[in-house]
């Protein structure tokens, strides 16, 4: 039997974003989608779960995530949990990890906690490690393949120079790479099983968190300035004669080659 908890985040579905007066991403207008690496983590969990195992999904975000969470039930997840509270707005990675820890404690022991390796909006990849530390368990990041080997997990972790294979004993946190697994579609059987199941909602109070521990107040980093920076136009010269072009490229290569 194995119980797997998957932490997912909804991110704006566009690449042009707006920020408010406190440098928080404006999420109201933007349509949301599950972060791509988190979908990979979800599928990893669904394929690792055994007959008696469960996959529980937890996310922190606005109430409108109920529908997309419901959809995850139809894809085979057993339980879906939404942490939602105005107090949580503006959370940095630490405040987020704090909320996820409280939810994980409340949900009961998991053998494995999966996260995406980073979100495409903040791109910090810090929540998995902070969450693991908060729970006192190890964390292995950047994993592209997970498989059971009796009661241990074989993890294939992509580092800069190659793939490291590790054998791990739970409980632990693993962050999964985008595109490693592609999330299955809703199935007839899962849809039938999902019927009657609802999204469980937790507020800060439900998790025993005070206003000081949540959101902007519970954060230890503060954005003090933000500027939008679209890559600057360089508008360099264009060469149509390949021979001349190659000559110029050669010169540039000589400049940078040791």
């Amino acid at each position: 039997m194995n119980n797997i908890l998957v932490c997912v985040k909804a991110v704006p579905a566009t690449t042009s974003v707006q920020v408010d007066g406190q440098y928080r991403l404006k999420r109201e207008g933007a349509s949301l989608q599950w972060n791509i690496a988190d979908e990979s983590a979800l599928e990893a969990a669904l394929s690792l779960k055994d007959k008696d195992g469960t996959v529980t999904v937890v996310t922190m975000g606005p109430p409108k995530l109920e529908a997309p969470l419901q959809d995850l039930l139809a894809r085979g997840c057993d339980r879906v949990v939404l942490i939602t509270d105005r107090l949580m707005a503006g959370a940095d990675t630490r405040a987020t990890a704090g909320a996820l820890r409280a939810a994980a404690k409340r949900l009961g022991p998991a053998d494995l906690i999966l996260c995406g390796r980073r979100a495409i909006d903040g791109e910090t990849g810090q929540v998995p490690g902070e969450l693991a530390s908060a729970l006192g368990i190890p964390c292995v990041s950047n994993v592209e393949k997970l498989e059971w080997e009796k009661d241990r997990l074989l993890l294939h972790r992509r580092l800069e120079t190659g793939v490291e294979v590790l054998s791990a004993r739970g409980p632990l946190v693993v962050s999964v790479c985008e595109y490693a697994y592609s999330l299955r579609l809703p199935g007839i059987l899962s849809m039938r099983r999902a019927r009657g199941k609802t999204v469980e909602r937790y507020s800060a109070a439900d998790l025993g968190l005070t206003a000081e521990q949540c959101g902007l107040k519970g954060s230890l980093t503060k954005v003090t300035a933000m500027e939008s920076k679209f890559p600057g136009l360089r508008n360099g010269p264009k060469e149509t004669d390949p021979a001349k072009g190659i000559q110029a490229l050669r010169a540039m290569l000589r400049e940078v080659q040791p």
């Binding site: 990849g125 810090q126 490690g129 902070e130 530390s133 990041s141 950047n142 230890l220």
Partner: peptide, 23 residues
């Protein structure tokens, strides 16, 4: 911000009650 240090630093930051900025 190598892959291994980006895993280690968040764990350390939590233990030290420190804010951490990535990359």
């Amino acid at each position: 911000a190598t892959i291994r240090m980006r895993n280690l630093m968040p764990m350390l930051a939590w233990k030290l009650d420190a804010g951490l900025t990535a990359d």
